[in-house]
Design a protein around this nucleic acid. Structure first.
Lengths: 354, 354
DNA sequence: GTGAAAGCGCTAACAG
DNA sequence: CTGTTAGCGCTTTCAC
């Protein structure tokens, strides 16, 4: 079946079988198309009663400007591209929601580009962007498109860009993030304050920029508390539940078992706890577990997860606001840091024998 | 700071300070603009060596067609709008990922419209759609835009539409969904087969179309097993973790407590289990809990959740495929039903005293 | 304060 | 197989 056969009819049921154009409005209001355009773009420059007449005609015809024509003429699309590494990751949904909300208010639409680990898709979105299909982009993926640069060493993309969550090293664009290093240090020190001395650290993907900040914070915390950094205690993960499960197995196989594990995502922490429980190891009685992000499920995990709260919606909003400022010729800070919060729940306790 | 001041340079570093247009390519290849256009749209209609010359010129200039111009002329945008009730809901992320993937392969971009309970936003996206900014739309929100209809009773939107997950009553558009009723019935009967007689049912939002199917399935299952439907055992929720928590409190306050609770979302089931545990009620020893959806966290919940698996990525893919078929003039089935799976894990057991 | 006119960059008839 | 021509619907000088 096809739904393509319907006749188009203007919104309020008047007019013939096609969308109203600026001409139709102009004719009805007895003005030129230029005036109609003005009423929409800069109402104050049109006399009051002309404006009223035009507005009435617009309502009557159900006129909606054709965006392609407008865009062709004005070289603006009122669209923003949001590039992210993995749409399926639940961590992003609230951030996206914050972005969408803010963009919407500013009159911009949001196009999503899911990289999904495919260089081909990345190239596509780079082309997409340089083809002028969007006015700006928010990058959550930690690097610039294809890093293609022209002879002058300037990126070929010449629209405003904003980096969100993952800083882009060497890129001269505004960055919105949380202080990963400080947050990570804070959690590490909290763990020590609860009596832990052997604290394992479950990382995100090795090449991840923000991960480097976090592990630095972990080392900061250790050092501040007079503890040595032990590479043996660092387990590599990738933020997913599955890598938490795997890390649990790794841990269970060890003879010298840490008393606490600091996971840099809640997903990993939850997966880890699961493996531990299945093996009869209790959290937090036998081993403490801490997370990072404070996703919705952290509070209802069993036990409720002690973690670092990231203001995800606010991060999205801040990035969108920064981009809109840029798009409208305003300036925006080079770096915006949002505050994290240590959320103490039940997954961390004193180690046995303390 | 502003990043707007960069000069634009064509991809490969050649040419002056502006993007190449079709004219530039035509001149360089010594053909007309029409031929360049043909090389891009229907290469086989152009002679081999002209094509080669044009392709070379395209590469040399770094030409990328201007989408606004193309769109204005051809009345196509190669964009699809995806409307959903709540972007922040993690249930949607994998579906979106499936949609994006399929759309991308077909050469379409994905614009996200998050309704977020706002009628104003809904109106916006309706206008957006009728303004021709997208070629088609996938609706996950269970109803048509603003249900504005013109004099003839036809919807004002005349582009292909596809309904995903939530059927749209009375709408004559293809529908992609799972068999909610059968799945719900199956779970109910499974619960009965494990010895349960008093099975509570935790619903989604009351006005939700798909919810009506599910509760029907629950009643089917009860009836098939010779059990009476008891409205007292129906608790109203809204798919969120929070409503699961609330339902738990409700249940704890009851004197006649059911031995099992069938929740129509995993989020609610997880929230519910949390409340139960906090009150010292064990799952599944004291009460069994079943979910719906099989989100990632279901498998690592404590206890691991028995639930109905929905093929979320496949749902997204199927909807996108159906829409693309429509957009390209092919036909598509009126209704596509994807199979669900009963996933037995640890949250359901025999009731005590059986 | 308003109108006329010139395109924005592309595609699709229509000729040849 | 290829070129010429005429717009798609809008915004924006430039006159008045």
């Amino acid at each position: 079946m096809s739904t393509g056969g319907r006749k188009f009819r203007a919104g309020s049921g008047e007019g013939a079988g096609r969308a109203a154009r600026i001409q139709d409005v102009a004719r009805l209001a007895d003005v030129s198309t230029a005036t109609v355009s003005r009423v929409l773009a800069s109402p104050n420059v049109v006399s009051e009663d002309t404006r009223a007449r035009v507005l009435e005609a617009i309502a009557k015809t159900g006129y909606v400007p054709n965006p392609a024509a407008r865009s062709l003429r004005s070289q603006k699309t009122y669209m923003v591209l949001v590039v992210l590494p993995n749409l399926a990751n639940t961590f992003f949904s609230k951030i996206l929601s914050g972005i969408e909300e803010t963009l919407f208010e500013a009159g911009y639409g949001m196009i999503i580009g899911d990289l999904d680990g495919s260089p081909e898709k990345e190239a596509h979105f780079a082309a997409f962007t340089s083809a002028g299909r969007v006015d700006g982009a928010i990058l959550l993926n930690g690097h610039l498109f294809g890093q293609s640069r022209d002879a002058q060493g300037e990126p070929a993309i010449n629209i405003p860009l904003v980096a969100l969550c993952e800083a882009i090293p060497g890129a001269n664009i505004p960055q919105i993030e949380v202080d990963n290093r400080a947050a990570s240090r804070r959690m590490t020190q909290y763990l020590v304050s609860r009596g832990h001395r052997l604290i394992a650290y479950l990382t995100g993907p090795a090449d991840n920029v923000l991960e480097k900040e976090r592990i630095r914070g972990y080392r900061d915390g250790l050092r501040a508390e007079g503890l040595a950094f032990d590479p043996e205690l660092v387990i590599e993960g990738d933020y997913t539940i599955k890598s938490g499960i795997d890390a649990g197995r790794d841990l269970l196989g060890r003879s010298r078992r840490p008393t606490a594990v600091f996971c840099t995502s809640d997903e990993m922490a939850i997966g880890l706890m699961r493996t531990l429980h299945s093996a009869g190891v209790r959290v937090p009685q036998d081993i403490s577990v801490a997370g990072f992000d404070d996703i919705e499920f952290a509070a209802v995990a069993e036990p409720a997860l002690t973690t670092i709260h990231q203001p995800r919606r606010e991060l999205g909003q801040a990035a969108a606001t920064a981009l809109v400022d840029l798009l409208q010729g305003r300036s925006t800070p080079e770096r915006i840091r949002l505050k994290t919060e240590l959320v103490v729940r039940d997954s961390v306790a004193e180690p046995v024998g303390t």
